[in-house]
Design a binder for these strands. Structure first.
Lengths: 325, 325
DNA sequence: CCGATTTAGTAAACCGATTTATCTACACCT
DNA sequence: AGGTGTAGATAAATCGGTTTACTAAATCGG
């Protein structure tokens, strides 16, 4: 069982493989009613299921697209993936989600694997460490869209957020409220989002005539973050406001504050880049910068779809505004 | 460019396709050193990338597995998916994640699509509404593992949580603390998880000699939930404890409480089935029932892997204990 | 030196569809 | 009658690998 092929259907219906193929692809230009019926019956009877692999081999398109996310447990990634999925679903495409774990090696492996599997295009949250590979894809005209992070010196469709601007606004808001010691906590500056957010922070300070105090800036890996926070909060000029550059950082900060019994509102104000689910249920007065993930995902999918269908538009960078909640 | 085939490599290296194929598959039994080198060079020079689709057609295996989740934005689903992905990654498999949105039609479409794409096996969070389809897969010996939800009358590998027991314990705890009016809020009883959790709730009451008051049980869709909660909290015997059957329900309940200004701890105690990210940062005293998602995902992947490799073990149901935080 | 065995490599069938060029009736027209 | 057109269906090539069976040359034992 389970090996009914088109040839079997053809035999059962007393026609040729070609005719069955035409039938399945709705090419009814010249096809007798009785033939249609016979094929129809044969298919039902045998329980025939077409083999897409065979079709893909000939047609050189798999109707699959790959999504390579930097971190699959990141809520923002799943929102985007879901939006892409939705779009694909209505355009007869399938999405394969892979998790690069922010590891350039893994990213490379996945890119190569997915291309070997002949997926029709790729949506990538780039680690930024595989520029040669990115470039070769672009050069070959392979459909690619980058999401969330910019990659320098590469003409490629990208969908990102106004990282610097929103951070600027959030920090500006802190300043307006009279905060002088505003801390900024970020993971190592390996990707554009972190760099841009830090830049926004610095610019807000400078524009307000405040000095940028390196002691108030933590750039550390997650594992080192707690001890850095320890240092930060034992400073003379302890921060009264803190900007967490993403939700992962917020998690560390939140745990730290809980351990130390530092209360929000009185002792410290908090702003976080990224939305977290259930954030609106918190009573703590934390500002969350929310990116329009669904729209971004949809846009990315559209851009990829355009490339797959050879619309030949020149690459563009789409910047979405984020919202401060 | 971008169409270098094995034949090209063979020509460039002055050998036959077969030899190149052997080389690529590390079948070095009888292969001269010089030949290896020539092939190696030819591959490098031409930038040859093998086409997995062609290989899959012949080998009848794609090294891909499908994951059909009920709801991709559900944190529990992504945790499981990630664990499955990890396992696959170390076993030369690829995972395709699809989102059925708890819609049996979509689920059916995805199952058929993925099978047409010849994926080697499927891990499904079943909607429970496609029993014929499930059964036909099982009958045909197609590798399948069900996750999170039981499906009745079907001999199939499943990985689930002790839904009834953990709910029982949480409710029992409420009772021990002196609560008499314990509410239970759940979405329509279409899947086993919800049914089992409700059963656990009822049993806890009965075992403690309390009566099951239907007025304290809300079984409603998300859109009707707020108004049902309105009703619940205007009852004479208003609840002093509430069990939310999953995180989606908790979201509604949380919003409702916030709107009404009902404070936790004094007026109401809360327990939730499902973990939510950042829950441990909350200062509100809410009990969360956490399922061991990572272990469950790993187990599911192992079970699928076993079936794919024809280990022919009889189907079993694995029940994981959840933890009350 | 001969037959047997090992080493190295290849031709060709195959996987299951799609697609192109072709072929056969038969009707229609002049 | 002969040429043309058209509806309906098909044979065969193709996609890019894998795999089996086979051949040719080198090696070996006695």
């Amino acid at each position: 069982m389970e090996k009914v092929t088109m040839a079997d259907v053809a035999k059962a219906a007393g026609v040729s493989k070609s005719t069955v193929s035409q039938y399945l692809n709705n090419r009814f230009e010249y096809m007798g009613e009785k033939t249609k019926l016979k094929i129809q019956e044969a298919i039902e009877e045998l329980g025939y299921q077409p083999n897409f692999i065979a079709r893909s081999l000939k047609q050189k398109r798999t109707s699959m697209v790959g999504i390579i996310v930097a971190n699959i447990t990141h809520y923002f990634s799943t929102e985007i993936s879901r939006a892409i999925e939705d779009f694909c679903h209505t355009h007869d495409l399938h999405a394969i989600v892979c998790n690069a774990d922010d590891d350039p090696e893994k990213e490379k492996k996945y890119i190569e694997m997915l291309r070997a599997k002949q997926v029709d295009g790729l949506i990538i949250f780039p680690t930024g460490q595989n520029n040669d590979l990115y470039e070769s894809m672009v050069r070959q005209g392979y459909p690619v869209v980058f999401v969330d992070r910019r990659v320098e010196n590469l003409e490629v469709f990208s969908v990102i957020t106004d990282n610097a601007e929103s951070t600027y606004k959030a920090v500006q808001h802190f300043i307006e409220q009279g905060h002088q010691n505003i801390a900024f906590v970020v993971q190592p500056l390996k990707v554009s989002t972190r760099i841009d957010r830090l830049a926004g922070y610095k610019k807000a300070l400078v524009d307000a005539g405040l000095e940028v105090n390196p002691n108030l800036i933590i750039e550390a890996s997650i594992s080192d973050m707690k001890s850095e926070l320890e240092r930060l909060f034992s400073l003379e000029g302890k921060p009264t406001a803190l900007f967490a550059a993403n939700d992962r950082v917020f998690l560390e900060v939140g745990e730290f504050l809980k351990e130390k019994g530092i209360k929000l509102d009185n002792e410290l104000e908090l702003a976080v880049f990224d939305n977290i689910p259930f954030a609106h249920l918190l009573d703590a007065p934390i500002s969350f910068i929310t990116q329009p993930a669904t729209e971004m995902g949809k846009k990315a999918a559209e851009l990829l779809f355009g490339q797959i269908n050879k619309e030949n538009n020149p690459p563009e960078v789409f910047v979405f505004p984020s919202e401060i909640l």
